[in-house]
Design a protein around this nucleic acid. Structure first.
Lengths: 358, 358
DNA sequence: CTGTTAGCGCCTTCAT
DNA sequence: ATGAAGGCGCTAACAG
């Protein structure tokens, strides 16, 4: 009677308590050390013992405690990611790519969003360092101009990899696409389609990707023997509205353009609205190319020619870059940080149809 | 000389070695316990001591080791999330919402993707349990029909919250939107706009959200005194192509419909392509409403009336639901799990313009 | 108010 | 091939 009660108590206790290697050891009349070795496939453990340990582990529903393992080993098998926002589809896709590759290697992902705030970014770095992550992957917030928080990561000798929103002066490995080339491809495509007075809606020039896109645009014009006209370059700020306004300005030029290369899809979309207002949206009437390959591009009318940024691949490449890093002398003096540049891909759709003659 | 060398060694050592509460204690001629208490703002520590500890902590650039804290306390302050894919914008947005709320409470996010695979989902649960997360948030993979892995979470007495892709039979807290109501709103709106022969492109009926949307559609028709005709209900599978095909079928009916409510935006988009082919896309000519509020809806021509699923709010509500859960008797026998139902919102755009008379 | 002690679960010397 | 012992960094119980 009392015994049954006692057994019930034990049972209750077991439900609450986590199964440890000690429990397995006790059942097998051996020690935790042996169990640990057996589970980690240590060669010095006999095959018979390994069998028994594994069976008992399964029987007791043992699950390794990663926290304890991390504390002991100093490695967490966790990669921290800092992005502006998971709701921006580009970053969601990159995270997808990183997670896929990381998981195959037994790594987990700790996610942190900055909402483009510098203070959140600092906080994120701090949190991830506290969490002892094995690596940190960052796409820099728009607001960030001070980079001391990243240097702290370097001091801790923890790998930090930048993607897309990078900064070459800090000496961190990075992954980007070739924005110059993307812009060059886009502009050249418009030229080949018969357009000759091609305008550019550019982005803020303190952001490197937009600077590169402007340079690519100019270079393409030059290489084709076309003039680069200042009046044909109007600044926008990655919004539909700024695209509309920029296009409006361009259409009011005395010698108005016959095509626009916008540095970003949302700006291109705005430009398209303006073109529609001016009845200039028929295929072949006016050339238009965007940049980013946002999903709406294939659904709008006309469908939008754009430059694909290889979102998923960027995530995969970023994760793989981490795994390819040397474990020693990560930030060796005078060593140049690896930089992976992905090839952009021009996605040709209706908005850049060959210029019609009439 | 030897002394300088020795100092250099110490310096080198300090760079590598993490600063612990013991280091702070040593500097202050006190013990680690006191430092720990001071840093955790324990009331039994004198204000003067707290000051000194905090200053020294800052001076030495101390950072708490969350791993050690977790091991000791049994709490990780980490929430695990399992979703089909971060590259699907809906899930990205939900993750955004969860992370925002969690971070305000000092929680971090461990992210896991299933790619709609049952085995990955199982693996995810296992990984998160190994990581000792304080809660698990899941949107069930399409492939999943066996739910034992979720029950294991229950056995460990760890809170598990489902969102969107939920299952009411498992007894877990959950967050969804009212799909029935969303469909009802959409259909009623079309009726009020003057359409009377409204068709429905439905989704696979074993998925609850699609079942509810069909029911909402039928209910709205009945309440308006309109007949529910089987021929007006065609099945699709959440793709543009299936939307095109379904619309094609509907337009070939002898008594063909004057409006379509599609159970999902991509199906609506496909339907729209078909309408364009049949020159039925002028506002007021043919009514069309989708479901999901995908971003492309506001950019296509005509802009798409749709039902918003409150992505971000869903994430926020899910996180908040976790924080509102009782810490004791989480899965008490016979207790009914809380279920939060968010209100869908009808987003009215051009594609459902009032029916014109001609 | 502060110090002592012990241990979370694991792994890794060192010893046998 | 296995056991014993110690410690990763932190905090809670128990003493004063």
């Amino acid at each position: 009677m009392g015994e049954i009660y006692y057994l019930a108590l034990i049972k209750l206790h077991q439900l609450k308590k986590r199964v440890t290697i000690h429990d397995i050891a006790k059942e097998l009349n051996t020690t935790a050390a042996t169990v640990s070795r057996a589970l980690n496939n240590n060669p010095s453990i006999g095959i018979a013992m390994k069998q028994r340990v594994q069976e008992m582990a399964k029987k007791l529903n043992y699950r390794q405690d990663k926290i304890a393992t991390s504390l002991r080993s100093g490695k967490t098998q966790v990669i921290g990611i800092i992005i502006p926002s998971a709701k921006i589809s580009f970053f969601g896709s990159v995270v997808h790519g990183i997670e896929s590759v990381a998981r195959k290697r037994g790594y987990r992902i700790l996610l942190f969003q900055t909402n483009e705030k510098y203070t959140s970014e600092k906080e994120g770095i701090n949190t991830l360092l506290q969490s002892n992550v094995d690596a940190i992957i960052v796409s820099i917030s728009k607001e960030t101009t001070n980079y001391d928080h990243f240097l702290e990561v370097k001091e801790q000798n923890i790998p930090l990899i930048l993607f897309d929103r990078t900064n070459d002066t800090l000496g961190f490995p990075s992954v980007v696409i070739d924005d110059f080339k993307g812009a060059y491809l886009a502009t050249t495509h418009l030229i080949k389609q018969g357009y000759s007075n091609i305008a550019h809606i550019c982005g803020q020039q303190h952001i490197k990707i937009f600077e590169d896109r402007l340079l690519g645009y100019k270079s393409a014009l030059k290489d084709a023997g076309l003039p680069v006209k200042d009046e044909n370059i109007v600044m926008g700020d990655v919004s539909i509205q700024s695209g509309e306004e920029a296009a409006e300005k361009l259409l009011q030029l005395t010698n108005n353009p016959d095509a626009i290369f916008a540095a970003e899809d949302f700006m291109a979309l705005g430009a398209l609205q303006t073109l529609k207002k001016h009845k200039l949206h028929q295929p072949g009437q006016f050339g238009l190319v965007g940049f980013a390959n946002e999903s709406f591009g294939q659904y709008i009318t006309p469908t939008l020619t754009t430059v694909d940024q290889r979102n998923i691949e960027m995530g995969e490449a970023t994760a793989e870059l981490f795994f390819s890093l040397p474990s020693k002398d990560l930030y060796k003096e005078g060593q140049v940080a690896p930089k992976i540049t992905l090839e952009p891909e021009l996605i040709i759709r209706e908005s850049s149809s060959r210029k019609s003659d009439k």
